[in-house]
Amino acid sequence: MSLLLAPFMLRAALAALGVALAAAPLGAFVVWRRMAYFGDAISHGAMLGVALALAASLPVFWGVLAVTLVLALAVAALAGRGVPVDTLLGVAAHGALALGLVAVSFVPGVRIDLMAYLFGDVLAVGGADLALIWAGAALLLGLAAWRWRALLLSAVDEDLAIASGLSPRRERLTLMLALALLVAFSLKVVGALLVSALLILPAAAARPLARGPGWMVAAAMAIGAASALGGLALAALADSPAAPSIVSLAALAFLLTHGLASLRHRGDCQRGQ
């Protein structure tokens, strides 16, 4: 039990909490805009960033940020040219991940723990990581709050946004760059394979609970935070891998909220609605 209160556990909890909170608004937009594969593409591309950073002996964060930003811009540019977006994202996701893994194997002299980057190592988060995560989270939450209505209207209908004097292209780009940033600073916590899960699952789980977009983000925050803390507790008590435990709980939340919603719906029908 005392494991739960160990300093490394507290740091892990704060880190996971920061990622979960920052992921909530972005995840909601990813769900609304049906960009689920975009999260995959960017997070898988992060492996290439890891490899390049190690090869150039740069901090991993900067390598990942550079590659994810380039990837986000490239996908945004190509998507406007008539290439089917899901095909494009599939190519980007798998291509970048594979290329990253190949590249990592060529980095001389460094034996790196690939698992740590694929699945994260939240229990090894240090003070500097924590500062980075919370700075990034504050930045992303601030951005989402500042652009909220513009992002929202652009997601509802691009023509309406244009008619209101907004630039949906710019809002889309903002969102993609924000996603790149989120992946870069949360890589250490949840890892490349699970970032997009933590992005999408809490938001998707929140959908049946919410009557408005703001509520959906708030519910996604709550579900993400609860999954993060619960997953870590599970890891500490049952010695399960931390990040997959977090994501499993978020998936469970999804099943619960959607199951309850369909039960309630069936109830409505039986009452003759």
Binding site: V31, R149, V156, S164, P213
Partner: peptide, 19 residues
Amino acid sequence: LALDASMPLKVRHFLDLPR
């Protein structure tokens, strides 16, 4: 309108966009 049911949006919220 390219409305997607994945976004919960009341008429009231919609009218509040962008101001």
